[in-house]
Design a protein around this nucleic acid. Sequence first.
DNA 1: TATGCTACCTAACGCTTGTTAGAATTTCAA
DNA 2: TTGAAATTCTAACAAGCGTTAGGTAGCATA
Lengths: 201, 201
Amino acid sequence: MAKTAGKTQDLGGAKGAQLSRELLIKEAARLFAEKGYNKTNMRELAEAVGMKAGSIFYHFKNKDEILQAVMHKAITLLVANVQSSIGDATTPMERLRVLVRMELGVYLGEDADYGMVLIHEWRSLPESLQEELLVMRSNYESYWDTTLANCQQEGIIKANPKIVRRMLNGAFSWAIYWYQPEGEFSFEQLVDEVMAMLVVG
Amino acid sequence: MAKTAGKTQDLGGAKGAQLSRELLIKEAARLFAEKGYNKTNMRELAEAVGMKAGSIFYHFKNKDEILQAVMHKAITLLVANVQSSIGDATTPMERLRVLVRMELGVYLGEDADYGMVLIHEWRSLPESLQEELLVMRSNYESYWDTTLANCQQEGIIKANPKIVRRMLNGAFSWAIYWYQPEGEFSFEQLVDEVMAMLVVG
DNA sequence: TATGCTACCTAACGCTTGTTAGAATTTCAA
DNA sequence: TTGAAATTCTAACAAGCGTTAGGTAGCATA
């Protein structure tokens, strides 16, 4: 998959820096999610993308910036998904359901690796590299805040919107560790249960 | 604090292995919570307890077993607290509130370091050392399961008890990262808000 | 064909780390 | 007081790590 042709050796520049960079981010997300950031070394990541460890530093200044790129993509996914799906809903209750389904979808679906890294490796990222991500994240969270505030105004939820948002944040990220798609509950059932947990009446 | 007398030098064995071991667990919990398991090295931990790195291995076989000991204490705290407080409540609703207050108290109170490590460093612990802890944890979780099941029977909550338990697990552990005791909400207000979020009507 | 840029490789450096063996010191019972 | 057991120190090893400098092969332009 990482090899361009049938040959094992793929010497010399070929596929363009952009593609290699994206592949690195993708494989890094997979490895960081599976083994953790600290226990994934550059040689391992290099092998996963079909190059040698030293070559990675042509694309990234250091290991931390790879982690940053992975997290950047994670938040980008969240923001992109919320923007493309929030328009489908009109009432606050519907928007809440859309948000629940969307965030759980990012954490539990095919992009789960990115969500895993975003949640679990936050403290592995030096503070100097956190700033941009924090801005993006608070932008994303504003969708939640306004929706939950509207829900409270209509009496759909009773608790404080800010607290509910924080709690859901944790609850959903934790789902990575226990939810099994082949298990007792389908994804849509999970969404239903969350809504049943939140909404009064 | 780690020094027995005013002297900086405190050579030789003195205070007994039990005390040193407990101090090591305590300081390890603090450091692991603050900096993370991987970024805390033995020399740092040793300095925190007033000994040299090599001496730690008289009390623990390796670094992993220190992490295990910290987590063991964390679960022990949870189990001890639930057993001593659950008796105060009679109705399912009261028991639920007791559990909420108790778990949040462990995560946010003076023993927060242990909870932090238990939650955040689970994947740093080799699987071979997880077994005992998993048994203890599932024992602890059974208190939640029965209480939530009773709440559902009485119509206090609507969603599936198992899912609710998982969600609260994540929600509460996440609170470590955002809750500030000096902030907008007092601890008891936080408990109230959680109950308002969960309970129908 | 010559030139320069792009993308990758090779080989190694230097630092940190967990861990260990053996010596040294303290404690405590006899 | 003496001797053994308990506890800590010293000093170093060996392995793994991120990172770097310099070399090399392919490709585009002229």
